[in-house]
Design a protein around this nucleic acid. Sequence first.
RNA 1: GAGAGCAUAGCUCAGUCGGUAGAGCAACGCCCUUUUAAGGCGUGGGCCCUGGGUUCGAGUCCCAGUGCUCUCACCA
Length: 508
Amino acid sequence: MSEQGENPLAEHNEQRDLRIEKLKALRDQGIDPFVVERCERSHTAAEISTEESFSLLENQQVSVAGRLVAKRAMGKASFAHLADESGRLQIYVKKDDVGDSIYEIFRVADLGDFLAVRGYIFRTRTGEISVHAQDVTLISKALRPPPLGKMDEEGQAHGALANTEDRYRYRHLDLMANPESRAILTKRCRVVSAMRRFLDGQGFLEVETPVLQLVAGGAAARPFKTHHNALDHEFKLRISLELYLKRLIIGGYEKVYEIGRVFRNEGISTRHNPEFTLMELYQAYADLDDIMELVERMYVSIAQDVNGAPNFQYLGQTIDLAARPWRRLPMLEGIRQYAAIDPAAFETIESGKSACLAINVPFSLDRETTLGGLIEKLHEVYTQPNLIQPTFITDFPVETSPLAKKRQDNPALTRRFEVYAATQELGNAFSEINDPLDQRERFEAQVSQREAGDDEAHPMDEDFLKAMEYGMPPTGGLGIGMDRLALILTEADSIRDVLLFPLMRPDK
RNA sequence: GAGAGCAUAGCUCAGUCGGUAGAGCAACGCCCUUUUAAGGCGUGGGCCCUGGGUUCGAGUCCCAGUGCUCUCACCA
């Protein structure tokens, strides 16, 4: 926020100044790395450096390119490593072979520059498969040194960019310097594509619905607000995908899904980012039990795709997704097992609270204003930490489930489940309400909660209610936080590790 | 929102009892034709996060602020 404004060229930086000088000197000799537009590559680093490929490629000509990430210059013959997306590859540059002028180009190349190398494959005295250069071209120049550190024989980086803030804030540097960061982020992308592949294979249609909405509904959260100039109207960024996808079911689509960014104006933590990726699907003529079956197959398929097995490790435990059917546990039954409170105690909020007092719960009862809220709190505190192997928690309280059908035999409970594994919530599903009168009552109950001070209660949405009044088939729906799913499949510590660019406070 | 920890060279980090700044890597110069965290000799590089305070003297101690990280709360 400096008043005079920052001129990047005025920035004092000795190493950068030197590199700019080098660039000028090269240009004076007619060598300009930035005029290069493309580069023919015959092989990637990974395609060269395996034993199988070596047996085919030894003494063969190859053309490779990549970022200069290590350099060991020794007078008239030098070694260096180039990194491309596939990995690292050693090159050997000998003055006698490339000639004085090319050797000089290599000699002045800095770490971070991009080089194209043509040469033949050989194995060094110490056994490393390498390219013996016959030609070296500078194809792009880095004006700042990369925070690479050094890599030892085990491939372990030393002295590389390690500061957590910088790794998130300058992800391009993190990706350059830390292969394990890239591995986790790549896996996250694969989780999303595996999800898409599975759903496409099941006959679901991928759709896109509005991010800018007049009423931000479908979840309980405060929205971001923005303004459209031409309409001179306030819009909100969506907090879920739900209500527009249901409109598509009303319109006659039978199996739709969307994988999209949603925005919640809330705190940031190791499990929360203000914008995150949600997958929601809706299937007409299906109920909660159909969705359970779908979820079991979906997770097995995704784990198989990204981990190569229908299970994964988390905190030292093996989570076995293939052992189907997964456990089904009604929420009140879980509370009976893990908190030792009889379901009969939840007649009223008062009787529920006395049962809580009797077992000395470790949270404040004053905060709980609805029976359903109290029950969910007990579930989170007592049951959830025990849910290691995949488990469907069913029969959520009606007050906290304003979009789920009531159970016919007990209208205090809903046809809803959340799926848990490794103690993490990994999905939320309902038999969706399709009775517009019931839906109106639920919204009205939410509006009274809002008026009682709960600014995250669901807002009234007349436009959606009107849509439902045209008739909606019985429908099963499912929502999955993709970032959370990626988090446990990668065993990452923080949601920021599975987001390419997590939200950061503005720099300086 | 509450608490704890951290902030020093481009990167990773030391810095003792309060005495005006150190290493490795990176950079620059010289040597070196199979090295691989190459090596050898030499050189440059610092708003010690910011602002106050204590003190003859503060990277170090105190206060406040800022930023980050973690824990808790919030987030059905």
